[in-house]
Design a protein around this nucleic acid. Structure first.
Lengths: 127, 127
DNA sequence: ATATCACTTGGAGTTAGCTTTAAGTCAAGA
DNA sequence: TCTTGACTTAAAGCTAACTCCAAGTGATAT
C-alpha cells in the first residue's frame, strides 16, 4: 500500500503519516527498491492504533515511547503496562472534566431554551 | 481580590489570567485608582467558568466569541445557544473517542497482566 | 527619602503538532 | 526522449495557548 492509499484509508494526510513515522510512531515501514513506502498490514494496524490514541489526546512523545518499548522486546512489558495505566488515569480525568462541562452546557442550553421561548429574561454578563 | 489571590484560588498563573482577560475571556475586570486589577465576584465566576470550559478543551477563540455575544445583550441569545450546542457536539464526539481509547487501553492492560504473570507470551511489534 | 515588592504593560520566546516548501528521484505514458 | 506525477528528504513555517522578560509605577516599611 502506498502512502496515498493509506492516507485515504485512515483519513490522515501523507505529511502527517510521514511525520508520525519520523517521530517513531509507526515502526518498520517497508520500502520498495526505489525507497518508496509500501505499508503492510502491520504498519496499517499501527497507524490505526496511533490514530485512535491521538484522537483521545495521547501525546506524540508518549506514543513514541510506547513504540520504542515495544521494539525493545518482552523485558519492557511491565514498563509498557505502567505507561498505559498512567495514560488511562489521564483519560479518566479528561473524561470527568468533559462530563462536568457537558452538564454545565446542557444546563445553559435549557436556560436559553426558556429565554428564546420568552419564558425567561436574559441575564447579561453572568457566566 | 488581587490577581495573586485569584491565581491561588483557581490555580491559574497571573500571566494566564491576564492573557485570558486580554483575549476577552473575562469581561469588565475592575481596577483600583492605581490601575491594579481588583477582581469582584462576577469576574471570579467568569474565571471559574472559563477554567471549566478550557479544561474540557473549548478554544480561546470560541470562549472569546461567547463572552462577546454575552456583552452584546439579549438579542444574541439564540446565537449563544447555537454556539453552546455546537460545542456540546464536539465534546460528545471527544467523549466517544476517549471512551473507545480507554476500552482499548483496558484490554491491553489485561493482556499485560497475563504477560507479567507469565500466563501469556509477549507479542512484539503488534499494536 | 529610599528601598521593597506586588503589580502594570507590550512584546518576545516556547512547545506541540502539524503543514508547507524546495529540491530531487523514479517509473510510466506520449 | 521527454514529460508527468507520485513519491522522497530536510528544513522552514504556522497556530494555539501560554510563558517569560524588561522596563516602569505606586503604596508601604525603614
Amino acid at each position: 500500500m502506498t502512502i496515498a492509499e493509506v492516507s485515504k484509508k485512515y483519513d490522515l494526510t501523507p505529511d502527517t503519516i510521514r511525520y508520525y513515522e519520523k517521530e517513531g510512531l509507526i515502526p518498520r515501514v517497508p520500502r520498495n527498491k526505489s525507497g518508496i513506502r509500501d505499508f503492510n498490514e502491520n504498519s496499517c494496524r499501527w497507524i490505526e492504533f496511533i490514530k485512535c490514541m491521538r484522537n483521545a489526546g495521547l501525546s506524540i512523545e508518549v506514543l513514541s515511547k510506547y513504540v520504542k518499548l515495544m521494539s525493545e522486546g518482552p523485558e519492557t512489558a511491565k514498563e509498557r503496562k505502567q505507561l498505559l495505566e498512567d495514560q488511562r488515569e489521564i483519560l479518566l480525568k479528561r473524561q470527568k472534566d468533559i462530563n462536568e462541562t457537558i452538564d454545565r452546557i446542557n444546563h445553559k442550553i435549557e436556560i436559553y431554551d426558556d429565554i428564546v421561548k420568552g419564558k425567561r429574561e436574559d441575564y447579561i454578563l453572568e457566566p
